[in-house]
Every structure is written in structure tokens, then in C-alpha cells.
């Protein structure tokens, strides 16, 4: 009972702060709590909405146009590579997440990534994680071939680094791993598997959305 009372109070606080409550992301509440949340929203609807900053329309236009140009990129490259998966196109922007604490700073590039990612159903490509030290020396930490869809299913094959020759797959029902030399299949439950593999684009975008600052190092197109 106390848990529900406190949860409802926190929900009201979050809306009062004009932030998205976590309950809107994870709709696993009891019907009773859902009804109470709905009632809070209904009462709040008596108030005038809190409008965005003055430059919202301008920012919106930029992001919408950016979303359109990403779609054009997808259409022109469709004829060429990767036939296997349903809709395979993503703009992959390499970023450095300098601080993952602040939830508010969301530069346009992150929004553009988010919008580009919304347009696709699945993607395929080689993901390389490179660490660069203060002296500018770069070392490849891992390199993997990835086939992934947005339902959380994926196939990842290690090419370089500690995952070399390790194949991990998750079809939403079961997760299994095979290492070529071991001749042994290891089975795991598909869930929980909150961070399926290193640099899953959707997860990276979610992390970047929470970042205080991001820096663009370059861009590449994973097309299909």
C-alpha cells in the first residue's frame, strides 16, 4: 500500500516537473495504478499546457527536414547492398558520450539519429569499437559483425578482440552462444538481456539522449 502511495506521489512530482514519468516507458502497472495515473492526467488537463521554448518550431523544422534527408539516403542506397533483412538502413554516427548523467541535453544530431533509427526495422553491419588514448593512439577493442532487428533479435559474430570467433544469437525465445573451437553450445534465457551486444544502435541512441554532451567524430552509412 505504501509503495503505491509513494509511487503515485512521485508520478505527480514528475509531471509537475514537466518530465516523462518512467511509468510511461514501462507500462507494467496494475490496472488500479494505471487508472490513478490516468486520473492524475485528467485533472492536470484542466490546466493550460506548458508550451515549449520559443525556438521549438525552428528546431522542429530542422529535425523534421533532417529526418527527410535520412529517408532519401535510405531510398537511393536500397538497390545495392544487403538484401537479406526487411528494411535495413541506419545512419550510424560515432559519438563520444562524455557524461551520461544529465537527461536534458539533446543536440539535434542525437534527435536525427533517433529519427533515422525509427525508420528502420533491422540492420546489418560491422561494428568496431576503438579506444583512443590521450596521445591519440587508437586500439581496436572489438570488431563484430551484427545482424539485428528492433524486436531485440540479433546475431553477432566476433571478428577481432575478446569476442573473436564467438557467435551470440538471440531470437527472442532463447539466447545461445557458440565458440568455434569449443564445439559446445551454451543456452541462456532470452530475457533478461537488457544490453544484447556492444554498441546496439538503439541502446546507444538511448544513452546519447541522456548524455550531457556529445561530440561527432564522423559519420558512416549502414545501408540496405
Amino acid at each position: 500500500m505504501n509503495r503505491r502511495i509513494n509511487k503515485l506521489s512521485k508520478y505527480i512530482d514528475t509531471l509537475n516537473e514537466e518530465r516523462k514519468p518512467k511509468e510511461h516507458e514501462n507500462k507494467k502497472e496494475s490496472p488500479e495504478m494505471e487508472e490513478l495515473f490516468e486520473t492524475v492526467r485528467q485533472v492536470r488537463s484542466l490546466k493550460d499546457p506548458k508550451l515549449p521554448e520559443e525556438d521549438y518550431a525552428e528546431k522542429l523544422t530542422t529535425v523534421v527536414k533532417s529526418g527527410q534527408s535520412k529517408k532519401k539516403t535510405k531510398r537511393t542506397s536500397k538497390r545495392t547492398r544487403y538484401v537479406g533483412l526487411a528494411a535495413v538502413a541506419a545512419v550510424l554516427v560515432f559519438i563520444i558520450v562524455l557524461n551520461t548523467v544529465g537527461p536534458f541535453a539533446r543536440p539535434n544530431i542525437v534527435q536525427a539519429m533517433e529519427q533515422a533509427f525509427l525508420q528502420i526495422g533491422a540492420y546489418h553491419g560491422i561494428v568496431e569499437v576503438i579506444e583512443t588514448n590521450a596521445e591519440g593512439e587508437s586500439v581496436t577493442q572489438t570488431k563484430v559483425e551484427v545482424w539485428a532487428d528492433k524486436e531485440g533479435r540479433y546475431y553477432v559474430k566476433g571478428i577481432e578482440g575478446w569476442q573473436k570467433d564467438l557467435v551470440t544469437a538471440n531470437d527472442g525465445e532463447t539466447k545461445w552462444q557458440i565458440r568455434h573451437d569449443d564445439k559446445e553450445v551454451k543456452l541462456f534465457s532470452a530475457f533478461p538481456d537488457p544490453y544484447g551486444f556492444t554498441f546496439e544502435i538503439g541502446q546507444e541512441i538511448e544513452d546519447a539522449k541522456k548524455a550531457e554532451k556529445v561530440e561527432i567524430l564522423g559519420d558512416d552509412v549502414i545501408a540496405g
Binding site: T14, E18, K20, R41, P49, L51, P52, V63
Partner: peptide
């Protein structure tokens, strides 16, 4: 529908796209 600015901005943007 959502009663918070953060989510309303995001959904408005996604809707336009």
C-alpha cells in the same frame, strides 16, 4: 494525452517526421 512537456515535444516531433 501525456501531460508533460518532455514527452509532448518528442511525440510532436516524431509525428511530423
Amino acid at each position: 494525452k501525456v501531460q508533460n512537456r518532455e514527452e509532448a515535444e518528442d511525440i510532436t516531433q516524431e509525428t511530423f517526421v
